[in-house]
Amino acid sequence: MTLQVTGHQWWWEITYQDPSPERVLRTANEIHIPTGRPVRLVLNSTDVIHSMWVPNLFGKRDLLPGLQTVIDFQADKPGVYRGQCAEFCGLQHARMGFLVVAEPPEAFDAWRLAQLRAAEAPKEPERQRGEQVFLRSSCIMCHQVRGTPSAGRVGPELTHLATRQFIAAGTLPMNRGNLAGWITDPQSIKPGANMPMTQIPPRDLQDLVSYLEGLR
């Protein structure tokens, strides 16, 4: 299985390669792999040099602009392994973490199928309003939720955001409060990050967070 990992200041873009284009999966900051199978990570960077490191799975390998590097590894035991950028990459080098989730092959296949599906249209009125807030605001300049008109590719892809355990590249556990805090003031949590502060009225914010929380 081959995954393309692209380093960005300061998050990880992950693409599951597949011969058929509709099975290519793009996600961020959380890598799922099946246990007991060899995995190849193909690394490169679009900005500065980063380095991929999961102490309990594999040693470091740099992500270099203009060059490709490779990590071959295999996880035999299911579990969640934390990793972090190991090459100084600027202001938020400290907050560039990620997770590797190793699960039995069946669970992995199920996860992958679920991730490939587009986001379901929201049913609750609150979440429907939230989707509108999302589509109206500057979010879509950088982010994408498949199944909606949003198509930004600059920031992490959000289609199944709520299935991930952390937001902001391993910085905050995924929950309502953190999502709201991150959207309104990312610069105090991760100063220098490329996500700007967004002025959203409190009511809209609640709706937006509900919408995002439902992206499962």
Partner: peptide, 8 residues
């Protein structure tokens, strides 16, 4: 697992 050059 603590990397260098992290501010926190």
């Amino acid at each position: 697992g603590m990397p260098r050059r992290i501010y926190t």
